[in-house]
Design a protein around this nucleic acid. Structure first.
Lengths: 230, 230
DNA sequence: GTATATTTGTGTCAATATTACACAAACAAA
DNA sequence: TTTGTTTGTGTAATATTGACACAAATATAC
């Protein structure tokens, strides 16, 4: 009944980078071949025959950019017939969040060129990757509001202002420092240490740490993390 | 570098059915061929060469069950290498919600057999369809809490108890009638008519209607529907 | 060493939202 | 006319949110 199917399956990764005191950025690669040769695109590529989707996206990411990431979340599957001008290719997209300076990015010396771009200054993107990026950015913001993603991006012991900066950067807006602290503290999975941290001028900051074990326990007990601060 | 890829792309639909006074059910088909011959499965099948994913799932649904649905939402893409014991098949799954008695389901007279099953009494399912179903059920509940899905499932003018029943059925738990009414009314997109409706014994109920236009306006204005009642 | 700039840390009050809870009204059926 | 069933409604206690300002601790500039 159905014609013999010849559809390729690809994966793409929207990798956000966040650095203390830094901006939010996205990892892109410069395409070496047509179509869209020399345009920037999300890292990704075809899935191998006996490889899971997640394995594929991690592999491509490693090969093309040098970034190794453990946690990726599936975003959406894009499948319009003409999203690739040549063949029919559907793309299962993923997104993740890492610390850029944890990795040495493959650069001009390699066959491929990979770079971090600030999210509010992206080049023109290949295929439908602009749409993929937009969806990922929206999901990242949404996720931040009900899950404590991003604690891995901070130092094991971090001043509260780092966490605050992470949130303002990803959400792209200011938040009330006092209310934010109050809210986060009320969850009970950040713990105060007795260490202090000094950087530049200003009063030294207490260091805090994220108690993942406690967080997991809370989640198991059906706790529902939920931020709606201004 | 990469081997020639031969992966099939399929779509699957988790179609929930809700009827006034009814239970929540799911539409399944009985497989006519191996693997999993005679087992029940979600409707679905291979995507055609020049067909969008959404068109494919609607077409398969129509062909296999007779159900035509306008709104489907993408759920997740399942891609473990061995989810199909024969070939490599990845499945892009969708879910939707309809009124069962709006359709004549294809039955034993046809090549395929399709049936509604109550969600808490499902047969053993083919492939990884149990997992697909579970994910869909969870998403449906979640969605109900922040979007007024389901108003299409009610009559154009409905007693409030119908809406309440829809919610208790999908959520699988009781809710406080007074608080529910208060909350829904506060949103301002259900309007009271001056008609009454009588069914069986008991006080006649006022009829209400859903003002979709008003709802859309609110959404455009950035309104965020959000239910957390008990 | 004094003044200035910078960053951290903290509490209260008003407004709003949530939750728990019970009884009268309107009808059908017995 | 009594009984059973369903609809319709308000209030008070509690919890959450949101707005808001100033002192403490340090580095830096003079």
């Amino acid at each position: 009944m159905a014609l013999q199917q010849d559809i390729k399956v690809a994966v793409d990764a929207v990798i956000f980078g966040y650095e203390s005191k830094g901006n939010l950025s996205v990892l892109l690669i410069k395409r070496g071949i047509e179509p869209f040769k020399d345009a920037w695109a999300m890292p990704g590529g075809l899935v191998l025959e006996r490889e899971s989707l997640e394995a594929a996206v991690k592999r491509e990411l490693k090969e093309e950019t040098g970034v190794r990431i453990d946690y990726l979340e599936q975003l959406y599957t894009f499948g319009k017939p003409n999203r690739d001008p040549r063949n029919r290719v559907i793309s299962v997209s993923y997104f993740g969040l890492v610390r850029p300076n944890h990795f040495k990015i493959k650069g001009d010396t390699d066959a491929v060129d990979a770079k971090w771009f600030p999210v509010n200054d992206l080049p023109k993107l290949a295929f439908d990757h602009k749409k993929i990026f937009q969806m990922a950015a929206q999901r990242l913001k949404g996720k931040l509001m009900y899950q404590p993603i991003g604690f891995d991006l901070l130092s094991p012991e971090f001043p509260f202002s780092d966490l605050e900066h992470l949130y303002t950067t990803i959400l792209g807006r200011d938040i009330d420092r006092r209310n934010f602290r109050k809210k986060i503290k009320s969850f009970g999975f950040v713990e105060e240490t007795d260490k202090l941290h000094q950087e530049g001028s200003g009063r030294p900051a207490k260091l805090f740490k994220f108690n993942k074990q406690k967080y997991d326990t809370l989640v198991d007990d059906g706790f529902h993390f939920d931020i709606k601060f201004v």
